[in-house]
Structure formats: C-alpha cells, structure tokens
C-alpha cells in the first residue's frame, strides 16, 4: 500500500474511532442505554475478536488448515489456555509466538 494511502487509512480510522467516543460523551447522556443495546455493545468485541483471530489461524490461502501440522493451531491453543488461566497477556502471547517459531523451525 502506498504511503499516502496508509495515511488516508489512518485518518479514516481516527474519524471512525472518534465517532465511537464523542457522540455519547458530548450528549452527556443522563439515562443509561437500553439494556439490549448495552448487551449488544458488550458482545461486539466477544464476536469480533474470534472473527478476526480464528480465520487467521485456520484459513491458509483460501483453504481450511485443520491439520495438526499447522503451527498456528498449536500456538492458538497455547495462548488461549494461558490467557484463560490468568497468565499475563504479553507472557501468554510470547509463549505462543515461541511455540509457533519452534514448530516452524522443526517443520
């Protein structure tokens, strides 16, 4: 992507993100949001993050890579279990990255 285009993307990201922060804040909402809307906003990251991560792990070149020879699959299992057990986020990620690097070196 050309440099100027990257700045355009960054500008668009900045505007999009500001639109998630400012409107409610400036409106000084006195009443809480409706419960279903609150629930939805809480669920969005819970849906978006797996929607991002899992295809990165399981889809390779437009095909499913479910085999045990896929290093990312092992890395994903490691980071998920460590983080779920309360291990610090960066430590979990570092261990998973090391596992993936090791499996790639061996494979």
């Amino acid at each position: 992507m050309p440099v100027s285009r990257v700045w355009l993307v960054i500008g668009g990201m900045a505007v999009a993100t500001y639109l998630t922060r400012a409107p409610m804040f400036l409106a000084l909402a006195r009443r809480p949001l409706p419960p279903r809307v609150r629930l939805w906003l809480r669920l969005v990251p819970l849906a978006v993050l797996p929607a991002l991560a899992v295809p990165l792990v399981l889809v390779r070149d437009g095909r499913l890579a479910l085999g045990l020879a896929n290093p990312a699959l092992w890395g994903a299992a490691v980071v998920f279990v460590l983080a779920a057990r309360g291990v610090n986020l960066l430590a979990s990620v570092a261990v998973a990255v090391a596992v993936v690097a090791l499996l790639r070196a061996l494979g």
Binding site: L49, A53, L56, V57, G75, A76, F80, L89, S92, V93
Partner: peptide, 11 residues
C-alpha cells in the same frame, strides 16, 4: 492472532 485470542479468553 495471539493478541486477539488472549483478549477473548479473558472476557
């Protein structure tokens, strides 16, 4: 992907 998975796991 590791960062994303860790962020999901804790939530």
């Amino acid at each position: 992907p590791a960062v994303f998975l860790a962020l999901v796991a804790v939530q």
